[in-house]
Design a protein around this nucleic acid. Structure first.
Lengths: 230, 230
DNA sequence: CGGCAATTTGAACATTTTCAATACGGGTGG
DNA sequence: CCACCCGTATTGAAAATGTTCAAATTGCCG
């Protein structure tokens, strides 16, 4: 399969040029004024794993050539997850490690690829002062993205499972849930009616207690179970 | 409705403190060393529009208090779109303007809110040298996100519509489409079988021509029509 | 040429959506 | 302070859509 991918993507992405030297490389150019580029080349074969969702994120990568698939597993997802994005030349991979400890995706080279890696520590000093505007913006932006994560599980599992999963993460623990149903339904990728039914179903199994404007979590275990967490 | 939202969210988000002065504000602190903060406060009432998807993005906002809904319309979506994220205190809104000309979402205050705005120009100078590492990372990250956009339409419309929309944007114009079906199906939030059927359907209406390893767009108009673009 | 894996096709099935009707609750005006 | 209104939320039942599982096909590669 790996080989196939290589060919496939190569065709589609013929426009993307590999980055071969630091003068063409955004990272290299950014490093230049102050010193040499702290990123270190590493090669991955097509199909090779780069990092695994949930692993301790201690390294960030920059794609110099090749194509990388980002996969994310939802709940109950036994396999490697679903491809949620494709990253090409010139993208960072694993940048989320700046605002969290774990990788939020699994990354796998789908073609032979050259990646530049850097440890979290070195990245930290490469990025410059923590309070510099651009860096503040970067981190806030990444943080906002990671808040969106639950939403990305939008198409995983049944409506009930998605709702349960959402309640597990975003959900108010012992607190009133009072976001308008319409908004929650949008975030979870379903219709308000479906959300309503899902909540009713969770209520019936005594995982939660709902009224029109109040929601309490009664049983975390049942909720997890409903979310498909094994 | 607006009032409702205010109450609702206020309850849920009681933990989120409003930012009242620049000493608590990441943006303010980032600005401090060099000078004063170039962002300007502005108040929005609950329900008020902040910006519209597709509008020229000439301003970026930072949320100091309140809650903002980000909505995105898919194809054929006549209304305002679906809520795709909720942004709280301490988030930027409209940062995508750094890497594109248009807002990719509609932003609407869902509670009374205080936003700090800045024009693109001033933001540019606030962020510092374009080649500074943190800024390069920021822009690459935003760019990668905007590449993911098509995927965010994952739950819009029927399978056929999503496929057609995807072909319109990502799709190879006159070029071979050769990404493995499994990957494309994942990106579009459907099963490979469903993708196969959708492609077959588009082929039957002569919008495209597909073979197992080849895809050509025959008729852009028909494709747009199938995508639900009116 | 033969085998394998990806893709397509088929048909039954499960789920969600849709549309319509009803219930609820807060807010308003008397 | 209470009754009435309006919009949101819930419920029901039918219909549409996508999923599943299995079987058949296709193209690539050895």
């Amino acid at each position: 399969m790996a080989r196939r991918l290589l060919i496939h993507l190569a065709v589609k992405l013929q426009v993307d040029q590999a980055i071969s030297n630091c003068n063409q490389c955004p990272v290299g150019m950014a490093s230049h004024p102050d010193g040499s580029c702290p990123f270190v080349d590493r090669t991955r074969r097509a199909g090779e794993l780069i990092f695994l969702q949930g692993d301790l994120a201690e390294r960030v990568w920059f794609v110099k050539s090749g194509t990388v698939l980002l996969l994310r597993q939802g709940n109950e997802d036994l396999g490697e997850g679903r491809v949620r994005a494709v990253r090409f030349v010139g993208s960072f991979i694993g940048l989320e490690s700046l605002v969290g400890d774990e990788y939020t995706d699994t990354a796998r080279a789908s073609t032979d690829a050259v990646l530049c890696g850097i440890t979290k520590d070195k990245l930290d000093s490469w990025l410059g002062p923590p309070q510099a505007p651009a860096r503040v913006a970067l981190e806030l932006s990444l943080r906002a993205d990671s808040t969106d994560l639950p939403r990305l599980a939008q198409t995983d599992g049944s409506a009930v499972a998605r709702v349960a999963a959402w309640l597990n993460t975003e959900g108010p623990r012992g607190v009133t849930l009072t976001l308008p149903r319409k908004v929650v339904a949008d975030l979870l990728g379903m219709r308000p009616e479906t959300l309503s039914r899902a909540l009713a179903s969770l209520a019936q199994s005594e995982a939660i207690a709902v009224s029109r404007n109040n929601l309490r979590i009664l049983d975390d275990d049942k909720l997890r179970e409903a979310a498909g967490v094994v």
